[in-house]
């Protein structure tokens, strides 16, 4: 047994278990035939199909102020322009 454990030690030294990437892709080829998206969705319990949030195009309506020429007198500027460019 001494010899055996020595051999095991040697094997471990020369031929240790190495990390490999494939264990993190189980089923990708065997179950899903290499369809990554399908595999991703199934193994994560469903995903948003697209994360693009639809923002409707808004068209600004035209506007006129009927009495633009006789508006209230210009208000004093309350705030200094601190923003710059």
């Amino acid at each position: 047994t001494m010899l055996l454990s020595n051999r095991r030690f040697l094997v471990k030294k020369i031929w240790p278990t190495i990390p490999t990437p494939e264990s993190k892709f189980q089923g990708l080829f065997t179950v899903y035939g290499g369809d990554f998206q399908e595999w991703l969705e199934q193994t994560n319990g469903g995903l948003w199909l697209t994360t693009d949030f639809f923002i409707s195009n808004e068209f600004a309506s035209s506007l006129e102020v009927l009495s633009e020429h006789c508006l209230c007198p210009s208000l004093p500027s309350l705030k200094e322009d601190v923003r710059g460019v």
């Binding site: 035209s62 508006l71 208000l75 309350l78 460019v85």
Partner: peptide, 30 residues
């Protein structure tokens, strides 16, 4: 430069609340 303008009108304001307090008294048409 931080000036507010309501599209279709001519005046500029230094804040949106100044702009609104002015046009709230006005009749507008769209």
């Amino acid at each position: 430069s931080g000036k507010f303008n309501l599209s279709g009108t001519k005046r500029n304001f230094s804040s949106s609340q100044e702009l609104l307090s002015c046009y709230q008294k006005e009749t507008v048409r769209s």
